[in-house]
Nucleic acid binder design. Sequence first.
DNA 1: ATGGTGGATGGTCCA
Length: 255
Amino acid sequence: MKIATWNVNSIAARLPVVLKWVAEAQPDVLCLQEIKCVDAKFPRDDFARLGYQVETHGQPTYNGVAIVSRFACQEVQRNFPDAEANAQARLLAATIAGIRIVNVYIPNGQAIGADKYVFKLDWMKQLRRFFDTTCDPNAEVLLCGDFNVAPEDRDVHDPQLWQGSVLVSAAERAALEEIKAWGFVDAFRLHHQDGKLFSWWDYRAVAFRRNAGLRIDHIWVSEALAARCKDVVIDKAPRQWERPSDHTPVVAEFE
DNA sequence: ATGGTGGATGGTCCA
C-alpha cells in the first residue's frame, strides 16, 4: 500500500507531470494540495483512465485539496465539521482500506505577525481539535499534506538564514507539536535521520540546484499504522521535469 | 542585492 502527498500548485498547470508520475510511481492513494480549481473542473477522467477515482474539495483560484485513490473513499469529510460554508478549502478526509486519511493544506502564514500568520496558528489549533473530536488515536490514522512548517533545523537548508521566518518559527513548530501530541509520529523520521532532505524548493534563485529547500510536506501516522510503515521516500525526480511544481511527492509504503 | 519565479487572473494576490 503506497500513500503519497504532493502539493502540485494548480492541477490544470501540472496535469502532464502528475499523470506521468502516477503512471510511473503507481501510488494506491495520492493526496493533492493547491489544486486551484473548482470540483467540476478537476480532470478526473484522466485519472479514471489510469484506474483511479477522485474526491475533491476545490475552490476557485486558491487552495483546494483532492484525494486520488485506487480504492473506494468512505466517510468523506470536507473541511472541519463546523467550518463556515465559504471557508478556505484546506482539508479533505476519507477512509480508504480501513485507514483514516486526512489530507491538509495548512496555511502558509505569509510573515510573522501578519493576519495570515494568526490565521495559520488558529487553523492548526482547529486541526488538533478535529482529531480530538473525530478520530481515535488507537485506530490507523494518517495525516499528510503541505504542513507549511519545517519541524526542526535539520529540515532547513540554512537555519541561520531562516531563523525567525515563517515556516520555521517557534510558535509554528509548537503548534505542530500540539497536533503531533494527539498521537502521531513522523513516518519519514521512522526511517531517515539525515538533514538536508527536502520536499520544497523555491522557484526563485535556482534553489533546487543549490538544494536550498525545506522539508514541509509530511506524512504522519498513528502508532497502529506506524507498525505497518516500511519506508518513506521523497521522490525528487518530478521537481526536475519540465514545468514542475515547487514541491515534490512524498511517498509512504505500508505492508 | 530587500531581489528572484510561477500560477491564476486580467489588478494584483498568493506562495
